[in-house]
Amino acid sequence: MHNFDFVKPASVADAVAALAAEGAQALSGGMTLLPTMKQRLAAPEVLVSLTGIAELRGVSGRAGASVTIGGATTHATVAAEAKAFYPALAALAGQIGDPAVRNRGTIGGSLANNDPSACYPSAALASGATITTNQRDIAAEDYFQGMFATALGEGEIITAVTFPIPEKAAYIKFAQPASRFALVGVFVAKYADGVRVAVTGASNDGVFRWAEGEAALSGNFNGSALEGLSVPSDGMIADLHGTAAYRAHLVKVLTKRAVAAAM
């Protein structure tokens, strides 16, 4: 790891100001950024910690309407506190990594990083969530722009994420055997105006919605509605852990299971 300066502001405004410095980078849970720095693949000159900013932490919501999660809220807090509002989201958070990772890692860090195998992006996209930054509100639809790419600008901070609460939803994660990130993860959310299916882990373009599956399930929210559909394997990730065809196949299997598990 290279040397760096460390600041821990107490407000978003101070954090934004600190991030304006040359070579500054936001640090939230550090579960992604610190290992990258240790491997010397990243060398920020200033780390601006977001964990001391009270307004970035916590879960609040209105039952049946929406739940809002502060950008620096840990996975463990989401798992515990979002349960009353959005059990499928809380369950997703409770399956990320291990207890140490869940006690450090945050929703803002996960969405900002947009790892193609991360869990949260599927929930945000399937829920039609709004990503709120210090500058603007971004619809999930517009936010995810491919592997590790998002709509965030330089120095822009995710302050909160708001999830409209669906009638029913579930996330099914099929773990990559080594990292235990999602080899494929499918988040299914049923709203009054239709069903949304978002898939993580599978595509070279990052998280995506399975439109055909959504159409079928919007007509009939039952796994049988997916019979006859198949997910094309073009553009799917192929690696040591699974071929493109395997991942494409899993999308459908896991969607079915998510529908069955939806609560």
Binding site: P177, A178, S179, D239, L240, H241
Partner: peptide, 23 residues
Amino acid sequence: LMENCAYDENGQLLSGSFMDYAM
């Protein structure tokens, strides 16, 4: 069931960390 030390066609280690080497 899990462990596999794999190299690509250039001899790069594909399973060079616990992210890809399944314990």
